[in-house]
Write a protein that binds this DNA or RNA. Structure first.
Lengths: 248, 248
DNA sequence: GAGTGGTCTAGACCACGCC
DNA sequence: GCGTGGTCTAGACCACTCT
């Protein structure tokens, strides 16, 4: 590889801090610096590329955020060993996800009623058993085909009617917001592997025993009170998660 | 809530940029600034807290990285609407994960042979069908109980023997490194929901039809050549992923 | 003590949005 | 034109590591 001195083009539209980050990244990815190697000190980089130390630091912090390098005070800046055994999976909301795949998503509302909270829902929503809560069953479609089956309980302490059109194209946070008139501010989700029972399989129009992802979701308002809870089942034969590349 | 003016303690061990970030975060979380609201301008914050604009910017960029706020050039800095419908799941390497749960993990090597590459493996590893590759089957245990079943193919163009102890406690990246004498630099993983067949269920000592996570992994070296490929099955009845809280 | 990264300042100029 | 955030500089002092 060419060891020609790379320089910063100050007339470029790309800001210098970004150019330097690119140069260093390229040098790391090409193997010029290998995991564990010490990078030139900030002072050296500053001098070599004709940039102030603050600018050099900005380049380095960008690479550090991406996980390519790390710094130790008093010692230096080093090339990271890649963490190849850690996977990060991002699961977007259904409509976003389907849109990204180029599919047209839609929602079929199967049920929406005010019901007395069953044991499990009462516990999760921290309301007395039997308290009136909103229960919703929906099927989420991609190009007309059921891909996910969504069941949710929403806290419902107001006496106002259910407006069906509010439940059609909205994710749980929006539903909670409209129905409870509270703003959810945090959520907690867990993902499990499961197999579909008869009822679930019917809703998804597949055979019972088909594998599925089970996404459980709890929403909280700013007083950390749970305001929504439920699960969404994603067909395992049509749905998979891919690990995300680094931030960079 | 108290609207007492918060000040920066310059004698604190906590650096000013961090103190300001905490103040702003608290003001956002308490609802003093709500999603969509405009924060005071950098100049105002700089003046109010007696910090240089660069320091104020550092506080803001920390909050921005955490997703609490975002900036628009020429307009201002705004409080983000929380993305409650996006879940981020991080899957650590098996031993790390089990250690975090307080379990003692171990590995049982079931098979490790040099074999002619079958069709699928040859395609994934980009070698001719029938080329010699290393095939490994392992069972990953937590407190002595099988939790995952791991099958991997490794590129193997050297003529050296297999050292069994190299396969015992190592994740795929280390195995590739030791056996192929190449440094893997990137990986690609996908996660699926599946059910165990007879052979897999036997390896995990559960009933066939039990749900499981299927993690497929491909490793690449710095020339983007695939050097390792395989799957790991995690018992769905014992394994779940939790969404991570924000970086902050 | 010399070298490293961590923090901070007080300016400067620019690009963008809005009136 | 004015206010906003985006970038950059040339210093400064500190905390830490190594020798």
């Amino acid at each position: 590889m060419k060891n020609e001195k790379m320089v910063i083009d100050k007339n470029s539209f790309i800001p210098p801090y970004y150019q330097l980050a690119q140069i260093l990244e390229q040098q790391i990815r090409s193997g010029q610096y290998r995991p564990g190697d010490t990078l030139p000190s900030e002072a050296e980089l500053s001098e070599k590329y004709g940039l102030s130390r603050m600018t050099v630091r900005r380049s380095l912090s960008q690479l550090a955020r991406a996980g390519l390098i790390y710094s130790e005070q008093g010692k230096g800046t080093f090339v990271s060993r890649p963490r190849l055994d850690r996977a990060v999976f991002v699961m977007e909301e259904f409509h976003t996800e389907m849109a990204a795949r180029g599919l047209v998503s839609s929602v079929r509302l199967m049920e929406a009623r005010v019901v007395p909270a069953p044991q499990k829902a009462a516990t999760k929503l921290q309301v007395p058993v039997g308290e009136k809560v909103l229960y919703i069953r929906r099927s989420l479609l991609a190009d007309g085909e059921p891909m996910a089956y969504d069941r949710k309980y929403l806290r419902y302490d107001r006496g106002r009617p259910i407006l069906e059109n509010e439940l059609q194209y909205q994710a749980l946070p929006e539903m909670v917001e409209k129905h409870g008139e509270v703003l959810p501010v945090s959520s907690q989700m867990t993902l499990q592997a499961t197999v579909l029972n008869e009822e679930e399989a019917r809703a998804l129009r597949v055979a019972p025993g088909t594998p599925a992802f089970l996404l459980e979701q709890i929403l909280f308002d700013n007083t950390e009170r749970p305001v929504g809870w439920g699960w969404c089942l994603y067909r395992g034969d049509r749905y998979q998660l891919s690990s995300q590349s680094p931030i960079f």
